[in-house]
Design a protein around this nucleic acid. Structure first.
Length: 554
RNA sequence: GCGCCCAUAGCUUAAUGGAUAGAGCAUCUGACUACGGAUCAGAAGGUUGGGGGUUCAAGUCCCUCUGGGCGCGCCA
């Protein structure tokens, strides 16, 4: 079998190991920044030269004299002030691509470091999903896919807003209107929400009744609880419809709403008081955190619990009950400080041990055409379905969803961006549709070959001919897929995977232009078909990791 | 006032402290009537917001200034 450990090591890792052994230190091997510098470059001679007061080129020569890379590389070149440029031998590239194609994980290193909890999406009950939920849902879904592909055990958690004062007015309005909740959908619930809110503002008697209804809900009154549960259930149906349209993996099984932590809130407060961390300040129970003026508020002066303590309870449950070794929170960047304080309190309390990693991934805002936060003319948040409709007016659903996701994931997450359907759905350049097209084109070649009886056998495919530069660069790109995925799993930066796939698609297009596949003969044809198959597979898997479908036909 | 984030070509943007800052869009010029032209090849376009500093080497690290976004106790 080709897929022993050695075979599954990346070329960069193989070279790094060799250089490390010869050098006794990190050789700082990197992919070359330009084609004329070969495939990989090593810059360590410059650092060592400066430290030792020797000419860097001399250091480089000495290093090269101490090792033999002939089995992997063409003769190394020393360039410029002392860079070492390495070019992989074509047969080594070919073997690496073949190994990747034969590997069920496509070469992606598999590590299971204990459960990873990803907290994302988090819409509110009785309200349709809106623009504010788009990014969390897309980004969180990408994380789940990438981490799972990396071998991790991932537990998605959809922390929906299913508790709070608004349920008093909602249920009171339901009762006033004698609404049949079985006949209500999520859009109808949102209209109910608006009516209830207007009623609340206009009628002080209603406001009093709404407050009393909150007390009844908290007290566990059966009829009130039944209405509350019905609102949650119908909301979950609405959320599931949007998730399906978006093509994200979340299901109702991943729901872990705020209310599920209600019974632990008092205990959280008591524990923090017992540890001497919590104190009464201005009538509220709070914890002060070094470096922040405003404290974490556990219990407000009216005796009520807020999101701080709910998030603490959720964090504790995820570590103690779900066994999480890594916590990832995907929310907008404005909540960054909240999570930093949350993690600090959890560390102080000993609930978040050093062995558990907690990360907040904050993303920028989705802006409207005018460059300000996307609002309707009435000043409310734009519904998510309306956003999807805007893109689908310009492309099929499959392409439109790809376009939106790619646009969202392809730049650094913390940046704001303008929701521009025309730019997103463009079929040229660095877009989702272009990547889908590249996949469809290569699929077309393989389909035609298949019609001729030429089916690539992934487990035994032979890439025997890599002569043309376009073939070699395509092969090199393919070998870099596993480390691109591993990088994103660690750094939670999807734009790097987007960049990788765009580069791969570009290499494919060049290859496509310069290297005829179906018109070639013998081993060249067999080899190029295998290269096409490997590219098709990496594109399909890579797009899937972004949550983007890879059509064979467009 | 304190804190976090951002600033790169006309526009959208990439770049683990490494070589001449890399792409896409738009613009201009080419490509055997095309294994899918939704493509490819090329040209032009940059004082990386300003100023200091560290370093053999700075878009990247440190300081400072400017401009923009956001957050700062009982909402999430």
């Amino acid at each position: 079998m080709a897929c022993d450990n050695q075979g599954m090591k990346s070329l960069q890792q193989l070279l790094t190991d060799r250089l490390t052994a010869a050098l006794g230190a990190d050789p700082e091997l990197r992919p070359s920044t330009k084609p004329q510098f070969g495939h990989y470059q090593c810059n360590v001679a410059l650092r060592l030269g400066a430290a030792q007061g020797r000419p860097p080129r001399q250091v480089a020569e000495q290093l090269l004299a101490q090792l033999n890379l002939d089995d992997l590389c063409l003769p190394p070149q020393i360039a410029g002030p002392g860079f070492i440029n390495l070019t992989i031998k074509p047969e080594v590239l070919a073997q690496a691509v073949g190994d990747e194609l034969a590997d069920p994980n496509c070469g992606i290193p598999q590590v299971d470091a204990g459960p990873v909890v990803v907290d994302y999406s988090a819409p509110n009950v009785a309200k349709q999903m809106h623009v504010g939920h788009l990014r969390s849902t897309i980004i969180g879904d990408c994380f789940v896919r990438v981490l799972r592909a990396s071998g991790e055990t991932v537990i998605p958690q959809n922390h929906i807003g299913d508790w709070g004062r608004q349920f008093g007015m909602l249920i009171e309005q339901i009762n006033d209107e004698q609404l049949d909740l079985d006949a209500l959908d999520l859009a109808g619930a949102e209209e109910l929400y608006l009516r209830a809110n207007a009623h609340l503002n206009a009628d002080s008697d209603f406001a009093d009744r709404a407050r009393a209804r909150v007390v009844a809900l908290q007290g566990g009154d059966p009829a009130t609880l039944a209405s509350w549960q019905a609102l949650i259930d119908l909301s979950a149906v609405g959320f599931a419809q949007t998730y399906q349209r978006l093509g994200v993996l979340l299901t109702t099984a991943d729901l872990a709403g705020e209310s599920s932590y209600n019974q632990s809130l008092a205990g959280i407060c008591a524990d923090l008081e017992a540890r001497g961390l919590a104190e009464i300040n201005d009538g509220a129970l709070v914890v002060f955190v070094d470096g922040y003026d405003a404290p974490v508020i556990l219990r407000n002066s009216a005796g009520g619990y807020g999101y701080d303590v709910t998030d603490l309870a959720a964090l504790r449950q995820r570590i103690d009950d779900l066994g999480a070794k890594r916590l990832i929170y995907v929310t907008d960047a404005r909540q960054h400080e909240h999570f930093m304080k949350l993690f600090a309190v959890a560390r102080m309390a000993g609930w978040l041990p050093e062995t558990v990693e907690a990360e907040h991934v904050g993303f920028g805002m989705v802006l409207g055409p005018d460059g300000t936060p996307f609002k309707t003319r009435e000043g409310t948040a734009v519904h998510l379905d309306d956003l999807l409709d805007q893109a689908q007016a310009l492309a099929s659903e499959e392409v439109a969803i790809a376009a939106i996701k790619y646009a969202d994931l392809s730049t650094q997450l913390q940046k704001d961006y303008v929701f521009d359907p025309a730019r997103m759905t463009a079929t040229t350049g660095d877009t989702g549709p272009y990547l889908q097209y590249a996949h469809a084109r290569v699929s077309s070649i393989l389909r035609r070959a298949e019609a001729d009886g030429d089916v690539v056998d992934d487990a035994n495919a032979q890439i025997s001919v890599l002569i043309e530069p376009a073939e070699q660069w395509l092969a090199l790109s393919l070998t870099r897929f596993p480390e691109a995925v591993a990088d994103v799993a660690g750094s939670l930066t999807p734009h790097k995977l987007c960049g990788y796939l765009y580069d791969l698609a570009s290499q494919l297009s060049s290859f496509y232009e310069q290297c005829p596949v179906l018109k070639s003969q013998g081993p060249t044809r067999t080899s190029r078909l295998a290269l096409c198959r490997a590219t098709q597979r990496v594109l399909a898997i890579g797009l899937n990791l972004l949550g983007i479908r890879a059509p064979s036909v467009m």
